[in-house]
Structure formats: structure tokens, C-alpha cells
């Protein structure tokens, strides 16, 4: 299981990257993260909504109320321009961390 600090830190870049593919809603975002991480990245579901609302307040996301196929109300989120910029920055920073880690790991095996 991934440490909760890392889970919290990765929430924003993951949400931004998922929404870059198209608008989505809370439950679907959580399910996709679970599926893509093979269940290793577990969010407490209730944690996601404050994060989404905070990102919306910061102008990274916008939202609209819609309906599911069964008529249930759903709040759909999508990226705003600032969200795309933030996502690019996250990718750059996480890639840097990844490359440093990978480089260090490689040196240990030499």
C-alpha cells in the first residue's frame, strides 16, 4: 500500500491528468485510479471531494450538474485553462523526481 502522504501529494496531478481525457465525476475518478493502480492507490472516497472543490476554487476545474443514465444527479468536473497549465507543471516535476530516482536506482545496480 502506498503511504498516505504520497497518496495525498499525487491526488491533484492524477485528477488533472484523468480530467484531461474528458469530463468526469467523483466516483468514476476514484474507480479509474483504483483500476489503473491495480488497487494499490486507495483514496478514502470522502477525501476526493474536498480536493475537487479546492481545485475548483483555485480555478483549475469547472463543474456542472448532470444526470446519470438512471437519472441520478451527478456533478461533472472538467479542466479549465489553468488546470491544463497546472497539469503540465505537475508532469514536469514528477518526471524530474522519477528520473532522479531511476538514475540513483540504476547506479546502485552497477
Amino acid at each position: 500500500m502506498i503511504r498516505k502522504e504520497l497518496v495525498a501529494a499525487s491526488a491533484e496531478p492524477l485528477i488533472l491528468s484523468l480530467l484531461a481525457k474528458g469530463e468526469s465525476y467523483g466516483y468514476a475518478i476514484i474507480q479509474e485510479v483504483k483500476a489503473r493502480s491495480g488497487g494499490k492507490l486507495q483514496w478514502t472516497d470522502g477525501m476526493l471531494y474536498p480536493v475537487l472543490h479546492r481545485m475548483e476554487q483555485r480555478g483549475l476545474l469547472k463543474s456542472r450538474w448532470g444526470q446519470s443514465e438512471t437519472g441520478r444527479k451527478r456533478k461533472y468536473y472538467s479542466l479549465k485553462k489553468d488546470g491544463k497549465t497546472a497539469m503540465a507543471k505537475h508532469h514536469e516535476q514528477w518526471s524530474l523526481i522519477h528520473s532522479v530516482l531511476a538514475g540513483l536506482q540504476k547506479e546502485q545496480y552497477v
Partner: peptide, 23 residues
């Protein structure tokens, strides 16, 4: 259980509200 206990949810949203108030 998966969604979280009410006090936990409330705490998270209170933090959010506090940030919004400061802003």
C-alpha cells in the same frame, strides 16, 4: 466505511472553507 466517517468529511470541508475564507 469507504466514503469516510462524517466527522472526517466535515473536517476536510472545514479546512476547505477556512482556506476560502482566508482567500
Amino acid at each position: 466505511r469507504q466514503i469516510g466517517e462524517p466527522p472526517f468529511i466535515k473536517t476536510e470541508f472545514t479546512k476547505l472553507q477556512r482556506q476560502a475564507n482566508i482567500k
